[in-house]
Simulated assay, not measured.
Amino acid sequence: MDIGVPKEIKDQEFRVGLSPASVRVLVDAGHSAFVETVAGVGSGFTDDDYEAVGATIVATAQEAWNREMVVKVKEPLPAEYSLMQKGQVLFTYLHLAAARELTEQLMRAGVTAIAYETVELPNRSLPLLTPMSIIAGRLSVQFGARYLERQQGGRGVLLGGIPGVRPGRVVVLGGGVVGTEAARIAIGMGAQVEIFDINVERLSYLETIFGSRVSLLYSSPAAIEPAVRAADLVVGAVLVPGRKAPTLLSADLVNQMHPGAVIVDVAVDQGGCVETMRPTSHSQPTYRVSEVLHYGVPNMPGAVPWTATQALNNSTLPYVVKLANVGIEALNQDDSLQKGLNVWKNELVHPAVQEVFPELL
């Protein structure tokens, strides 16, 4: 199979769909990889690195897109819509629940769109989302700590505090992978951490990890509101696979937070769990509402591409190989991959996204 790897064009997105190591596996299996020039430079991979393992370097995005399968990291942007082709397999993150225009464009183009974030194992885990969720969760506190600095517009709180001065208060909304990793970093910094989740079993599991170092609380408005009002940093870590994230922080509640407090909403690529949150970019990552700093970058792992690209490829490569070896028939052979299918033959087929856009059926 001919596989295209275009350069990512999202703002400061330095990850790449396939690393040279992944390309080598595909080439050794008899496939051809066409990598857009400098596509891997941001992750530390040169064109020479790709050519050394048998890839063909192409000069334009169109040449990379003009293949049976395209492997990316982030969703196609408007400049790429015209490059999509009928019957082509597109394997990437899509997050369609928060992207009606993209959903319509994928349907119109007739691509077979498989989303990393909805590939699901029998145990309901999300193997292609998990590595980026780990990174995003860890970065959420790293970025939150940075923007709490006064020079960055924050309230000037050191999350770890010092003897004689209380540590910063971190509220994590959601106890899944993102929330767990956010808490792990916040604890490591010495912050006071509270995690909210609606799954009592998950909270019990988190107790085995964190013990008494974290307050583990059942998620309800009555519990969340006073915690958020007192917080220095709030991390939105809510995930409902394939669906838009529920709104847990209203504009009114944001208005009651400390001036200079920070909200980092990792759920922003699924619509966000904060009413006042909108997507931002690495170039302009924050804005203010009610004197509260909002950080809504939807591709946070793009800030650490050397780590993120390799972590992503470790998980995606087996599925890429299956698709390359047997084509679309791989969907019938692998139930987990089948659950990743979002658009097929001009139709929206993923149940969760169908619930968001019933008018497109």
Rank of each mutant, 00 (worst) to 15 (best):
V178P: 08
V356A: 06
G161I: 10
A330W: 07
F143Q: 08
L26D: 01
V23A: 13
L206K: 04
W306F: 13
D49N: 14
V353A: 05
D49S: 13
V321T: 11
F143S: 03
V178D: 03
H31Y: 14
A186S: 08
P163V: 06
G190S: 11
E149P: 00
P259H: 10
Q152M: 13
Y116I: 10
V27I: 15
N346Y: 15
A97V: 08
A183N: 03
V343K: 10
Q12K: 14
L18V: 00
E75Q: 08
L94R: 07
I328Q: 15
D48Y: 06
E80V: 13
A29Q: 15
P358E: 14
Q192A: 13
D2L: 15
E275M: 11
V289D: 00
P305I: 00
P241W: 09
I9Q: 05
D197T: 06
Q354M: 08
L317G: 10
G42R: 02
G4W: 08
R15S: 02
Q354T: 09
V25K: 14
M84Y: 13
E13G: 02
I134M: 12
V268I: 15
L90V: 05
I263D: 02
G40N: 01
A330V: 01
L253P: 12
S250P: 13
V235K: 02
P241A: 07
Q152Y: 12
I162K: 00
M300F: 14
L148V: 03
R108L: 15
V27D: 07
C273D: 09
A98E: 01
D11W: 11
V89N: 05
A222M: 09
